[in-house]
Design a protein around this nucleic acid. Structure first.
Lengths: 247, 247
DNA sequence: CGCGGTGTTGAAGGCATTCAATTGTTGTGG
DNA sequence: CCACAACAATTGAATGCCTTCAACACCGCG
């Protein structure tokens, strides 16, 4: 939970954009070549280890950038320690607050995470300079609102079985979307859980034990197959969709 | 639940801005006089009755505007009818999607609601024309993200007592914020519930009965006093804050 | 006065939690 | 390479909170 940057590794950003894995999905997609160079000049790549705090606005640890690799969890906590994950960030997602203001959300690396980090104040200048950039950020904010509201339905109205099914479905679809053109669309979907049972519980508003029990239930019912503790195989996506909302 | 506009009442918008109750709080606050006139020219005021659907993007009932008066609930539903309120809109709040795109959220008038409605496509032109307008909308979107995440903590991690206390606290603070300069700051806070028990339940991820029971508990414990079924008096705000998160 | 809608209250049951113990996994040093 | 510690995950049993089902009270209104 240390807030220092001791573990960061800095790399050269300038020539990286061309070969960037998320170049055509991140906010910088909207920028022209010249504009991109301008952004690249205020950029540096940083790698965080699992468990490291990336964003903690209340503690002045303010970061603005794009996730290149890994998974970040956004959490909010109550005074007595109860925690709720309010969002997950994946590669190409924007992290940080583009406009100033506190929000009491913590961002913590779940896996090893690589961030293409922008200088915050200069980035805010660029937002005002390039309307398309502001538009891209605005679109992302609207998508975040949608995602948050979708999750509110899950938290408020779904039972444990539906919650787990919805969570697995989300990961399965994400994995499916990343398939190449040559891959077999009919093949069972495989992916690995990016997080621990504790994190899943905090994401779904459940306890660790309930998460474990429900996963076991899916395993024995054949809805999923587990290759290891973290690697999951979904033989029938529709069956999972069926379980995810109401059956 | 009818989707027609039969009940709307149209008024003159052009001269209304100057005396508008939310003029200095709505998105249009950022606009200069000339720009405001341009916005006013694509504006008309519409009044909705309780229960009327205001926004249903999936059914092409797309509205963009500012709430002038009343309360709107934003809901999402599961296939089997379970419902979750994912947001409440109050006067000065922006309603609708400034940028195109579906989102399967319904907006329904809870009380009688007056909306300062903009022509959607023309409004989108104005957004591109005036960066400050886009910025104001962006800020609002970020605030919505914050509010949604705050509510995710409530839905996922708070128990019934804390949920009700948090809800009442929100209304109490809203009421307190609207006090004039001459009002007594020490006086107990009074407000009336804008919605039914069923709506409160859908907002908090509870059932009607649990809502009723918890309110009764607060009533008998003295945390609140009820003047009628809808009118509430909070003698001690701190006590409510105490109940709202963890006691 | 009766009716429909809304809200309250009671009793019983179920689902998720809590508490507790065991098993499995991972990484590290002997 | 194995033993061991530390952590993560599973499984069991009991409790409790919220829900469900049901009946009744309240209230505005024709």
């Amino acid at each position: 939970m240390a807030l220092d940057y001791s573990q960061e590794r800095i790399e050269h950003p300038l020539r990286v954009c061309a070969s960037c894995a998320v170049r055509n999905r991140a906010v910088c997609t909207t920028l022209e070549t010249g504009e991109l160079a301008e952004l690249a000049s205020i950029t540096r790549h940083v790698v965080f280890n699992p468990g490291q705090i990336i964003v903690a606005e209340a503690e002045n640890k303010e970061i603005v950038g794009t996730i290149i690799r890994g998974v970040v969890k956004l959490t909010k906590a109550l005074a007595d320690g109860r925690e709720q994950i309010v969002g997950l960030l994946f590669p190409s997602d924007f992290i940080g607050r583009a406009r100033e203001g506190q929000s009491q959300v913590f961002g913590e690396a779940v896996t090893e995470v690589e961030v293409c980090m922008f200088n915050a104040s200069r980035f805010r200048h660029l937002i005002d300079k390039y309307p398309s950039l502001k538009g891209a950020l605005y679109d992302r904010a609207l998508n975040e609102v949608d995602a948050a509201r979708e999750w509110m339905v899950l938290l408020g109205r779904k039972n444990a079985e539906e919650k787990i099914a919805t969570f697995l479905l989300m990961l399965a679809k994400r994995s499916q979307a990343q398939r190449g053109a040559g891959d077999d669309d009919e093949a069972p979907i495989a992916f690995s859980l990016p997080m621990s049972r504790a994190d899943i519980a905090d994401y779904l508003g459940l306890t660790i034990e309930t998460v474990s029990r429900q996963i076991t239930k899916f395993k024995t019912s054949g809805a999923i197959r587990m290759l290891s503790g973290r690697d999951i195989l979904v033989p029938d996506l529709e069956r999972l969709e069926y379980l995810a909302s109401g059956e």
